[in-house]
Structure formats: C-alpha cells, structure tokens
Amino acid sequence: MKILYDHQIFEQQKFGGISRYFCEVIEGLNRFENTIVDISLKYSKNEYIGKSIFSQKINDNPSAYENFIPGREFKGKWNLYALRNKIIKPVETDEVNKFLSIEALKKQDFDVFHPTYYDDYFLPYMGNKPFVLTVYDMIHEIYPECFSLADKISEKKRELAKVAHKIVAISECTKKDLIRFFGIPSDKITVTHLATSMDSAASHTAPLPLASALPKRYILFVGARTVYKNFYFFINSMRLLMEADPTLHIFCTGGPFNRNEKIFFETHGIANRVHQLAASDAELEVLYQRALAFVFPSLYEGFGIPVLEAFSNACPAVLANAGSLPEIGGDAAVYFEPKDAQSVHAAMSEVLYNAGRRAELVALGNQRLQQFSWHRTCQETEAVYRALVAGT
C-alpha cells in the first residue's frame, strides 16, 4: 500500500502542530510492513520534515533573503538583493511544489492520497483514487468573527469534507462539530487522537542557560495569542491574584508581544511580570518543568497537544472547560469556565497554593499520557487507508 502526501502544510509552517502530526504519521507508517509513504515536496523551511526520512529531498528556497550572500550583513544588502531579484526571477517555490504534487497525482502511482491542508487544487487529478482528509478543528465555523472576510478556509474545508472518501478527525469534539456544521455522516469520520513528541525521559542532563534566567514562580502560557485563545481575558482575570501575590509571574511562548499587549501590561502594572520567548523544543521542556502550572484558557481547541506536553514534563495543567480540552485532559487537569473571571481565579488558586494538589495532578497527568501515542495514531490512520484500498 502506497500513501502520497502533498506539500501544503510544509509550505505554511516552519513549526506547528499540523506539520508535526503529518511528520509523525509519515515517519511512523514508514516503519510499518507493507506500507510505503511518499511526499510531493521540494522546497520547505519546515523543521520537522527537514529532519525526517525525506530530509535529502527537501531544499531551502534559493531565492530567500537569508540565502543571499549568507553569513554576511552590510549596508545596502537589501537593495542589492532586490536588484538581483529584478534581474533574475526568484524561484516561485509554492508553484514548484504544487506542480510536483499535480505531476505525482497524474502518475497515479499511489493507493491513497492524503492532502495536508484544505486547498482543493488536486481534485481534477484524482482519477479513481481515494483521498483522506484530516480535519483539525472547526474554529473557522465556530468563531468566524476571528477571521478575515477574504478567508476561504471554511469554504474549501466544507467542499473537501463533502467529497473526501474518509475523514480523520483528531478528537471526538471535532467529529461532533463536523457533523453539526457540515452535516457529514458519522460513519464517514474516524477519530484518531494525536500525541506528544516530547520525551521527558530524554531531558537534557545539563540545564540550559534559560533555566537560571527564569522567574522562581510562574504560570506557563504556550502558543499563539489570537482572539479565540482568550489571552487578554485570562491576563485580566489574573490581575487580582497577581496583586495579592507579587512573586507570581506569567511566561509566554510564541511571537513577541505586540504594541497593544505591551500597553495592556503597562496599564495594569504587570509589564515586568509577563515574559515572552520564542522557545525551541528543548527550551519549552525546561519551561514546562519549572512552571508552577500550565494554563490553556482557549475558547476552542480541536485537540490541544500542549496539554500532553505538560503531562509529559510533570507540569500541572489548568484548562478551559471548552472544545476538546476536557476530552484530552480527562481527570488529570483542573478546569475553569473560560469567560468567568471568578472561575479562573478559583482554578488557578487551587493549583498554585496547594502543593499536594499539584503532586496529584502530576501523577494523574502521567497516567493520562499513557492513553496517547504516535504509534497508536499511526495504527488507526493506517487502518483507515487499508479499508479504503480494500473497498470497505
């Protein structure tokens, strides 16, 4: 059985949950007997695919600024780069990747095709071959106000969900929302939970320089801070607790704070107690391990890999009672209503000021973690492929 994956998500993400999921599935299935995996991709900056079995196949964009006279910075370099691009047409990496995907589809040398995102470019080239679509969440449908009117993801997702031969949903929550919003038949959808790629048993023997620079007492917030992630509401809900506990800090991963966030922190007098780092995987492990608690106040998640990352690193989890988070966290987390400041305050206090409760959550988290593995994800995904090939 041969499975073909395409380029889409590996163009969009340098890091990210979706590209990690596909890399874990590709790597895992490659170890399965009688299963062959292939990918139509030439140019990508994605860190995971660059370290995968396809690493020799992947190239960086030769026309990118960082590859122009690499290792040297000088006045006028950008202008020289722009001039070069006027003389020599830059490589259109997205067009090259899409062309390769279309050519691979035309050859029909595969049994099942699995696109990695929602562009429907491939439909005219499928012939009689089946394709599987993974749906990660229904955030565009539940909170459309968080996205541009020009955003076509929901429209394309709906179209592909209707014609896909099988759909993989990454949680029961996502499956229910697919049925509710798109009217997809239940028996067309298979739930395959994700896992974490973090291995706390393989933690670094020597502490990173980061460790000595961390606040002694902090809560960890991981990932993007877009509207539905509920970051502002959470910070606002924490102000009274932070006023009463001047040693408490909040540490955030993800991109740098924007101007509005900085103004918000300064206005409320907490600018020196809210920190940010675009953390590597190794640094993120340290951040989890040193935190008093991990908090996930999101209004909706299709799965929530950071919950398992926290469990893997013995970090107590405090989660919003929303989306798939209770499904993933089970009894190993403390929950709060994501738009109730008193509920946030009570949940955080329960964990921050009760060492016994934190120890209990760590133990429960370790038990809960055993229910999720990439091997299981791969097994369940392969079963979907084989059923399609068998025509069942």
Rank of each mutant, 00 (worst) to 15 (best):
K86H: 03
L41P: 03
Y65L: 13
K57I: 06
R84M: 03
G76W: 04
K45E: 08
F74M: 07
I88C: 07
I49F: 14
R72L: 14
L105G: 11
N59I: 05
I49N: 12
W78E: 04
G76S: 11
I88K: 04
P90L: 08
S101R: 00
E47C: 14
L105A: 14
K45A: 10
Y81C: 06
N46W: 05
E66T: 07
I88N: 03
N46V: 06
L41Q: 11
F68M: 02
F68Q: 05
K77G: 13
K98N: 01
S44G: 07
E73D: 13
N85R: 11
Y81E: 08
R84S: 14
K57M: 08
F74K: 06
P90W: 05
P70V: 04
E95N: 15
S40Y: 04
I88M: 13
L80I: 14
E92V: 01
Y43H: 14
N97V: 01
F54T: 02
E73K: 13
G71H: 09
G71Q: 11
E66H: 05
E73H: 14
E95R: 14
Q56V: 01
D38S: 15
V96C: 06
Y43G: 11
Y43W: 15
V96K: 09
K45M: 07
Y81N: 00
F74V: 06
F74C: 08
P62C: 01
N79A: 13
I58V: 15
V37E: 02
I53P: 08
N85F: 04
F54R: 01
I87E: 03
A64C: 12
K57H: 12
I49D: 11
W78P: 00
I102D: 02
E103H: 13
S101N: 09
E47P: 10
R84E: 00
N30G: 10
N67D: 12
A64G: 10
G76R: 13
N61K: 12
N59V: 01
S44T: 00
G50M: 05
I53C: 05
S55G: 00
I87F: 09
K86E: 15
N59L: 15
I102T: 07
L100A: 04
K98T: 00
R31F: 12
F74S: 07
R31W: 07
L41A: 10
N46M: 05
D38P: 07
A82W: 10
N79R: 11
K89L: 05
E73A: 01
S55T: 01
E73T: 10
K77S: 14
N85P: 04
E66I: 05
D38L: 05
Y48H: 12
N46P: 09
F99G: 05
Y65P: 06
V37K: 09
N59H: 14
L80W: 07
D38Y: 11
K89P: 06
K42W: 02
Q56F: 02
A82F: 13
K98F: 00
P90V: 02
K98Y: 00
G76M: 08
